[in-house]
Design a protein around this nucleic acid. Sequence first.
DNA 1: ATCATTACCTATCACTGATAGGAAGTCAAG
DNA 2: CTTGACTTCCTATCAGTGATAGGTAATGAT
Lengths: 194, 194
Amino acid sequence: MVASKVAQRREARIASIVEAAWSLAHEQGIQVFSLRDLATEVGVQQPSLYTYFDSKNALYDAMFADGNQQLLETLDSVDLPDDAEAALKVCLRVVADFAVEDPERYSLLFSRVIPGFEPSAESYAVAQEVLGHVVVAADAAGVTNQGDIDCLVAVTAGLIDSQMSNEPGGDRWLQHLDRMIDLLVDDATNRSVR
Amino acid sequence: MVASKVAQRREARIASIVEAAWSLAHEQGIQVFSLRDLATEVGVQQPSLYTYFDSKNALYDAMFADGNQQLLETLDSVDLPDDAEAALKVCLRVVADFAVEDPERYSLLFSRVIPGFEPSAESYAVAQEVLGHVVVAADAAGVTNQGDIDCLVAVTAGLIDSQMSNEPGGDRWLQHLDRMIDLLVDDATNRSVR
DNA sequence: ATCATTACCTATCACTGATAGGAAGTCAAG
DNA sequence: CTTGACTTCCTATCAGTGATAGGTAATGAT
């Protein structure tokens, strides 16, 4: 069952709109770019966007899925070292770099800056897939307990968030990422063997 | 130099507006409550609010200072145990409870959810005073290195944020707060004596 | 009692996301 | 090739937002 010509065209159009939306988000901010500006960028009138998205939040949902897909591909493209803990470090470092690289994307994916926006089940599934990568890496490094994984994720997120909020572009907080991972992994493995 | 009658009345009026704003923020969300609704709540027409605040962001600034002042008073009112590490734990637990207690306040104080809002120097100073409390407690517990303090703060923030984002009202993440503090304090002290 | 200041009003602005309803274009079946 | 359904896009318009202009009444210090 091939995608019909119409469906293909529609899909491509949606992708181009999402791309233009990212561009505007970078220029003006993810929360404040207007659908009129987006329509202009795409060469169309504002109400025409509603042919593709039921609401601005539906557009955000597509961007959310797209952003997580980007992260997924980034994670897949990196080749991990054999040592499991080193691999975990690389994995989380990739996430941190991905976040720092694009603050607006970070806002949409990891902060709750859009009032009323909740990712759809489909988009959320992509985000879960990303989390799955981290869980696999943590598991391989001996961090199998759910609570320990939660801490690992939360600590990484905390460092990323502090970094971006207080010193965007610097490394005052993220320089400690590897050490924090060491601490957590050691603690987790120690407690699991006792 | 006593405050003039006019200044007193004005100050009280501002306080009552800020209070009403918090109330609306709780009902509708910190980002989306409208100045018209706020004006109605206060018994006034919307443009009249501009007598007290130059913009909605100026109102947010007053709320930001007010919220940090609340946290400051909460921290001051708690009496800490003699043991320095225990005191640090209590201190950070109080911050966590304060955050969880009021998500909208948390959003304004610790997330960046209001586009274009930057706290004024005066309001930021109150936030710095809060941070000062934590730094003092950390210092007493032997966490004197700036990097270690940064980690302590970031980790606490990470746990709070994960908790509120993923399981508001629960304790899946915050149950690990004390253990994380233990880890960080131990690591910090160990590295400082080597 | 006067008068400047403060507080509040009405009217209106530009802009936002969203909806209604119609016209043109596109594609596939007969 | 023509027909007819579907898709895409348009104009016009809506209610709601933060913000500004300009005028009026209340207030308090002199």
